[in-house]
Simulated scan of single mutants.
Amino acid sequence: MEELPNIYERLGADNLQLLVDYFYDLVFTDEQLAPLFSNTPKEVIKNKQLLFLTQFLGGPGAYSELYGHPKMRARHMPHEITESKAIAWLQCMNKAVYRLPIDEQLKKDLFSAFPKMAFHMVNTEK
């Protein structure tokens, strides 16, 4: 039986780069999210996200090779992540996904990969 392509294979590296670019254009101007990223150069943030999403969506594991196991919740613990910030993050991701030049089903499949992860990052009640 032939294995179906994963989201990374269906999306492709070029569209994933577009997603990261669109997403951070929104994040860096979002009043709730922008302060979370103020201490690191934007290109460093975008590159790490690209490597992480490549691996998260089923592509090569370059993130783990460079930075070790993702441990995303632990890496985000120094930052105050509220439910409202998780929702803002998801809204930015949703807008970025739906700007991509891909078919509607892939947009749905791609976005559906994010809500569980976003809410898993919440570490502060407000």
Rank of each mutant, 00 (worst) to 15 (best):
42 K>A: 15
31 E>P: 14
87 I>P: 00
125 E>L: 13
92 C>V: 01
101 P>F: 04
115 P>R: 00
34 A>Q: 13
86 A>E: 11
59 G>F: 04
126 K>E: 14
12 G>Q: 05
17 Q>R: 11
123 N>P: 07
36 L>F: 04
39 N>H: 14
39 N>C: 00
54 T>V: 05
112 S>Y: 02
9 E>F: 00
6 N>G: 15
120 H>W: 05
63 Y>E: 06
45 I>R: 05
16 L>N: 11
62 A>I: 11
85 K>M: 14
3 E>I: 13
19 L>M: 09
99 R>I: 00
76 H>M: 09
30 D>I: 01
110 L>E: 08
39 N>V: 01
15 N>S: 10
10 R>Q: 15
55 Q>S: 13
69 H>Q: 12
96 A>G: 03
46 K>A: 12
94 N>S: 13
124 T>V: 11
46 K>W: 08
28 F>I: 01
17 Q>Y: 02
110 L>W: 05
86 A>Y: 07
32 Q>I: 03
102 I>T: 10
49 Q>F: 07
126 K>Y: 08
98 Y>K: 01
91 Q>S: 13
26 L>A: 11
119 F>I: 10
106 L>S: 07
19 L>Y: 07
4 L>E: 12
97 V>R: 05
79 H>Y: 15
24 Y>T: 02
2 E>Y: 09
19 L>Q: 03
115 P>M: 01
16 L>G: 09
54 T>A: 02
49 Q>L: 12
11 L>W: 02
63 Y>A: 07
45 I>Q: 14
14 D>A: 14
24 Y>H: 11
75 R>M: 03
7 I>P: 00
14 D>T: 12
112 S>M: 05
93 M>L: 15
33 L>W: 12
6 N>P: 05
45 I>H: 06
95 K>P: 00
106 L>E: 07
81 I>S: 02
86 A>L: 07
72 M>R: 02
17 Q>T: 12
41 P>L: 11
33 L>G: 08
43 E>Q: 14
19 L>P: 05
38 S>W: 01
76 H>L: 08
23 F>G: 03
76 H>N: 08
15 N>G: 02
96 A>Y: 02
67 Y>V: 03
89 W>A: 02
110 L>G: 10
120 H>K: 06
15 N>I: 04
99 R>K: 14
115 P>S: 03
29 T>Q: 13
98 Y>R: 09
100 L>C: 09
11 L>D: 05
78 P>S: 08
83 E>R: 15
87 I>H: 04
51 L>F: 04
48 K>L: 09
